[in-house]
């Protein structure tokens, strides 16, 4: 990893709030909902909080915090003129993009592994193969959230990033993912809208991987992949335009 990418990784890992929200908070949610599920009578037929459904949902929810990490880092680098210093260095446009993106990918994978490790400890039954497949299926969602962070960080202040990525996006991805409650509760139109967005599709694809329903994965994953590609491309465009115009 380059000096710049390593710096970005250190900046994020050394921020205690990042660690809490990125790692501890999703695990806490997983544990609380696991406890909640134990008190739901079997006759209720409520399977949403069963570990095989809950874990992929929490894994996707955890990824939404990656947008916050990336976005905050870039926005702060802009506001504190650190980017200005680097713009006058020999770093090229590609170095900036890989430098901000590369450290986030291992963070996403690490987050997924921690989430599943906690779920296994709580009693999740899933083969190693399906677990690894699920990590792979989560990658387009990871790129999606990294792209959103890069985009927001490139055109917003750190306070705005905190609001958009920290509050709005995490809530949006939680509410519209079908992790906390069934999307049927939104009604037919609401459910259709939720499935036009990437969050519920990402969770469904991850659930299909955990459950070994391999045929269901591509139909969900392509929607996530398209959103990821479009948002990441938009982020690259905005960042590159800012850089070439000297806007920080």
């Amino acid at each position: 990893m380059s000096f710049f990418a390593m710096r970005n990784l250190k900046e994020m890992l050394r921020d205690k709030l990042n660690l809490f929200f990125g790692l501890a908070f999703p695990l806490l949610i997983l544990f609380l909902l696991f406890l909640l599920n134990r008190n739901i009578p079997a006759q209720a037929g409520m399977t949403l909080f069963h570990l095989e459904n809950l874990t992929p949902g929490v894994a996707v929810f955890g990824l939404s915090f990656v947008s916050l990490f990336g976005g905050m880092l870039i926005a702060r680098d802009r506001s504190e003129a650190f980017l200005l210093r680097l713009y006058s260095s020999p770093l090229r446009a590609g170095d900036f993009l890989t430098g901000y993106t590369l450290p986030l990918l291992p963070l996403c994978v690490g987050q997924g592994i921690c989430c599943f490790a906690a779920a296994f400890a709580l009693g999740l039954r899933c083969s190693v193969g399906n677990f690894l497949l699920c990590l792979a299926v989560l990658l387009p969602a990871a790129v999606l959230f990294i792209g959103i962070g890069l985009l927001c960080g490139s055109c917003m202040t750190d306070k705005q990033v905190g609001g958009i990525c920290g509050a709005l996006l995490t809530n949006l991805s939680a509410w519209l993912s079908g992790t906390w409650f069934s999307l049927d509760l939104f009604g037919a139109a609401g459910k259709r809208i939720a499935y036009c967005l990437p969050f519920a599709n990402a969770v469904d694809a991850a659930r299909a991987a955990v459950g070994g329903d391999y045929g269901a994965i591509p139909g969900k994953l392509w929607i996530v992949a398209v959103y990821a590609a479009v948002l990441f491309a938009a982020a690259v465009l905005v960042f590159s335009r800012n850089r070439s115009s000297g806007r920080v």
Partner: peptide
């Protein structure tokens, strides 16, 4: 040009957590 210059910007511009 960039290989022979360096800049100390108006703001301190350091990496805060390093």
């Amino acid at each position: 040009v960039k290989s022979v210059i360096n800049v100390s910007p108006q703001e301190t511009a350091v990496a805060p957590n390093l």
